[in-house]
């Protein structure tokens, strides 16, 4: 019988049986690894990150309150870990805050359809070219279907800051798309 995530967590916390650990790990390993590679862009770094992320997940399993889906919680830890790692490597305070607070307001919002109608190959190129912080919020919103509230909770920012960040990320993505593909076809 296939157990739900919540049931697996409960059983693991009660019994510490490696069977439940393995099931949870197997379920999320591919996704976590894929996100690590996508954000860190290095296989070796992604492998190390994955180990730390899963350790963090299992050490904090008892703190998972079930307010959000378990997958959302796992991805939040993954994004935060990778963003933190990139921040440390670049030796900058944050890859979010300054930009959010200092950037001028953008008048027009890029519609979701502008991003969602991009071809997959082109979208991949666009996501590679925009800053990692922007990429992370776009992936959280459109790939992992996280709500603004869930994104703001996981990144520790206010909902309005996240809305602004998303707005800017969409703008940047569209701009990169136009610069890369539009005038190529002219």
């Amino acid at each position: 019988m296939k157990l739900s995530d919540e049931e697996l967590i409960r059983q693991y916390l009660e019994t510490q049986n490696s069977r439940y650990f393995d099931q949870l790990y197997t379920k999320y390993a591919t996704k976590v690894f894929s996100k690590c590679i996508s954000l860190l862009k290095e296989e070796a770094a992604a492998q190390d990150a994955m180990q730390d992320i899963f350790l963090k997940i299992f050490l904090n399993l008892s703190k998972f309150g079930g307010k959000s889906k378990f997958s959302t919680w796992v991805y939040s830890i993954t994004y935060n870990y990778c963003i933190d790692l990139i921040r440390k490597k670049k030796k900058v305070g944050s890859i979010f805050s300054d930009e959010i607070e200092n950037a001028p307001d953008l008048a027009e919002e890029v519609p979701d359809s502008a991003l969602l109608e991009m071809e997959v190959k082109k979208l991949k190129v666009v996501l590679e070219k925009i800053p990692v912080g922007d990429k992370a919020v776009l992936l959280m919103k459109y790939q992992d279907d996280m709500s603004i509230r869930e994104i703001s909770d996981s990144l520790g920012k206010s909902e309005s800051a996240i809305k602004m960040k998303l707005k800017r990320a969409k703008h940047k993505a569209q701009k990169v798309y136009e610069e890369t593909f539009k005038h190529r076809s002219l």
Partner: peptide, 22 residues
């Protein structure tokens, strides 16, 4: 959507997850 299709494509080209991690 296209973001999720991109993720699926990335799964296909993902290097093997190192066995030692778990």
């Amino acid at each position: 959507n296209n973001f999720q299709r991109l993720e699926e494509e990335e799964f296909e080209h993902l290097p093997n997850i190192p066995l030692g991690v778990a």
